[in-house]
Amino acid sequence: MKLNLILAALLFTSIATTANAEGGYGGFAIQGTNYEADGVSDDADVNAIFLKYGRRINNTFSVEGRLGYGVSDGSVEVLGVDVDIELDKFAGIYTTARLTTDSAFKPYAIIGATYVESSASVVGVTIEGDETGLSYGAGVELHIHQDAVINLEYMSYLDKGDIEISGISLGINFQF
Rank of each mutant, 00 (worst) to 15 (best):
P107N: 10
E64S: 04
S75P: 00
F90T: 01
V140T: 12
S75A: 11
D102L: 11
L79C: 08
Y94F: 15
E77R: 13
V149D: 09
V149Y: 02
A120S: 14
A91I: 11
A91Y: 12
I93L: 15
L134C: 03
S62R: 08
V78S: 06
G129N: 13
I127L: 13
G68V: 08
Y69P: 06
H145P: 01
T100E: 15
T114G: 00
D88L: 07
G74Y: 01
A97K: 01
V116E: 01
H145Q: 11
A138L: 13
G137K: 03
A91E: 06
T126H: 01
I111V: 13
E77M: 13
E131K: 14
T114S: 11
Y108Q: 08
E128K: 12
E141Q: 12
N58G: 09
Y115C: 02
Y108V: 10
Y136T: 00
S121N: 10
G74T: 03
R98W: 00
T60R: 09
P107L: 10
S135R: 05
L134I: 11
D73E: 14
L87I: 09
L79W: 08
T114E: 01
T95A: 15
A148V: 13
V83Q: 02
Y108L: 08
G139T: 06
Y108W: 10
L99K: 10
T100S: 13
R98T: 09
D147K: 14
L87M: 08
I85V: 15
H145T: 10
P107V: 09
E141D: 14
S118R: 03
T101E: 08
N59W: 04
T96Q: 13
A120D: 05
V83M: 06
G74V: 03
H143L: 12
S62D: 15
G80T: 09
G70C: 04
